[in-house]
Design a protein around this nucleic acid. Structure first.
Length: 137
RNA sequence: UGAGGAGGCCAGGUGGCCGCCGGUCCGCCGUAGCCAUGGCGAGAGCCAUGGCGAAGGCGGGCGGGAGGAAAGUCCGGGCUCCGCAGGGCAGGGUGCCGGGUAAUCCCCGGUGGGGGCGACCCCGAGGACAGUGCCACAGAAAACAUACCGCCCGCCGAAGCGGCGGCGCAAGCCGCUGCGAAGGCGGGUAAGGGUGAAAUGGUGAGGUAAGAGCUCACCGCGGGCCGGGCGACCGGCCUGGCACGGCAAACCCCACCCGGAGCAAGACCGAAUAGGAGGGCGACGGCCCCGCCGUUUUCCGGCGGGACCGGAAGGGCGGCCCGCCCGGGGCCCUCGGGUACAGGUCGCUGGAGGCGCGCGGUAACGCGCGUCCUAGAGAAAUGGCCGUCACGCGGCGGUUCGCCGCCGCGCACAGAACCCGGCUUACGGCCUCCUCGGACA
């Protein structure tokens, strides 16, 4: 890594994800748990600079369309609020109940306060609600 | 304008910002390696500097990125691996005819049947004299014969009605006799009633005691012949007076078809045909030869080797059986840990492909030419947010009754997972043609 990666603040590349079944099992088994109305969040801490997130939506999260929707919203939530996911941690978010009619702001309103309360939030990322995109031209 | 029938099309558009997947090109970094120069060394070679630079990492540019059903996984194929002498049985599937196709339970065109005023639609549509079985309830009777009500005939019966004769003034009585309700017995009948999903051909006429294919006409049915059609089948004539119900989506029979599993297929790479534990089964036999040993020889026994004959257990022929093959040394089954397995790479998307035109065919479809390249993930990309324009609904306001403005809400069903062809199911909207009816002119 000679050239600095120049990490884009709102990306979600493959190496920031939990990719294998093993990694998921590890986090779910060893991590701390946090329940909200529709989701369960597992987080363990490895130290270092890496930050990994995995999203799981099984059969109970609804049909394929509903599952895709839920996962996409959670991905967006991560991208826009990386401050709630400290470096050196691994987080797995499991969709437990189908969040019917959810939009990004409602997902954010459900998860962000809970995460801050439990693990402490860091630097002021955008709050919930319709944030006008940061880099207005 | 209402109700309905058939067919086709679309699956919101657009802008900004932030993302994801894979492709391609460029730049930077740069490991292995290669090259050049120099140095050291007897040499193999080593070291230094510079250049190129697989892989890989980072960044950027360009263009691509869900469906008509991607769904259910119900059929049919391709593809992959396993299996494959042959025969039989079992099992499964299909079931009017002809065609289409890689193939089908699909599609097209017919035939037959059924529904609708109609446009049109629907059909698991072989066989019920091969056999077995079933036909609930109701009904007299449900399959080989019969008869509940009813109808008709005869006899008995005898309330009643009548005739003749006798007696009597009369009422009436007596005798003989005719009809004869109810009821009983015997017989005829299957027209009618009633039951049922279904009732022993239907309608009409003759006929009769009443009736009946008893007779006749037409229809239906069976048989035969002739004609048409590739065929399912259709038409005509003759004939039989009719015997023989339904269910095969009950078993079954007949004809035809069918090997098994599936991309978590399968291949390669990684300590890599590494290798652990437990359990089960076993049988070898005959005969001959050679060597050694017990014991010096024969016999006998043991061990080792060899030739021939037979062949058990077991295994294979992926349901079973016959049969066949393997089977002289182990065979079979089960389980488990490891960095270890839903690790990586391939399979993986260009194909029975889409579109257009022409030709053949009623059509499904086929042939030819031209043209296009159009998702390839793997905890699984194809998105998120904001604006705007369409579209629909509701409300408010305005209106020149054509609409216009503002606000709010809605915008379906649904997400590729090896690939195709179908079927089925879910679902928002638009268009065209047709049928029946209404209103106006």
């Amino acid at each position: 890594m000679i050239v600095p990666p120049g990490e884009r603040p709102q990306g979600f590349p493959a190496n920031e994800r939990l990719r294998t079944d093993r990694e998921f099992r590890d986090v779910v088994r060893k991590g701390e748990r946090l329940h909200t109305a529709h989701y369960t969040v597992y987080r363990d801490s490895l130290g270092g600079e890496k930050r990994q997130v995995g999203i799981s939506a099984g059969k109970r999260a609804g049909g394929a369309v509903a599952r895709n929707r839920a996962k996409r919203l959670l991905r967006e939530f991560y991208r826009l609020h990386k401050g709630a996911f400290p470096k050196g941690t691994r987080t797995a978010i499991v969709v437990r109940k189908p969040p019917e009619g959810a939009v990004l702001s409602s997902v954010c309103a459900e998860l962000l306060p809970a995460l801050r309360r439990r693990w402490g939030g860091s630097e002021g990322n955008a709050p919930c609600g319709p944030d006008i995109s940061s880099s207005a031209s």
